[in-house]
Amino acid sequence: MTVQESCSLIDLKDVWTTYEGASCPVIKGVSFTIKAGEFVVIGGPNGAGKTTLLEAITGLLPLVRGTVTVCGKGVPHEGTTVRCNVGYVIQNFDFHPFTPYTVEEVVRMGRYGRIGWFKRESKEDFEVAQDAMRKLGIEHLKDELIGKLSGGQQQKVLIAHNLAKKPSILLLDEPFSNLDLITRDEVSSLLCQVCDSGVPVLMVSHAFDSLPDRDIRVLVMQGGHMVLDSHSAAGNVADLIRSVPVAG
């Protein structure tokens, strides 16, 4: 095991978090660490707090209690710095057909946080964005308006947007939800490559048939609590999650 693999890139200790205006916490006392190169699937029923967990990691939500450390930075205090280095593919997006942004523009936007204030995009920024589009097979769509694409193509654009960031950690919320079976396999293989390069991948998903054939760490959430933290082969993830008794 290399030094990089042994360091934890995400460290949650007794995390409680809530949405603004909510009366009770959505995440309750969750603790875990994620190391470089881990492929993690977060499962559990609807409303269990899976998406909220990703938002707590990215510092988008305030913490009620506990600590979140990402790449050595405290969240949410250093949330902006953390988000420059963390890819997060959101679940719900809906672009109007005439949203005035091309695919290339959207992918390049992934770099903007890293570039910083008052600076222009460099040649490298353009090249990284092109490379991300190439990896997702959407180069030919670069001049198309994002709203004109299908849901699956838009999903690929958002993944490319986050890959263009060259993230230290990649979080994905239901990344397969809009994709056809072949594209799921392609994206799954790509995520596997990302993971092999040392970048941990955390994915909220219900599409377990598309997981890459490798050792997968499975976290199961229920009612805001982490009820299972285990490892499984890709083919057994669904059974493992089903085996967790549902709390009354």
Partner: peptide, 23 residues
Amino acid sequence: TLFSKEITAITFHRKMAEISGIR
């Protein structure tokens, strides 16, 4: 002109801009 990157990202999708690390 000065904040063209940030403004472009925010006008596209405010949450995605925030996730990109834009203030």
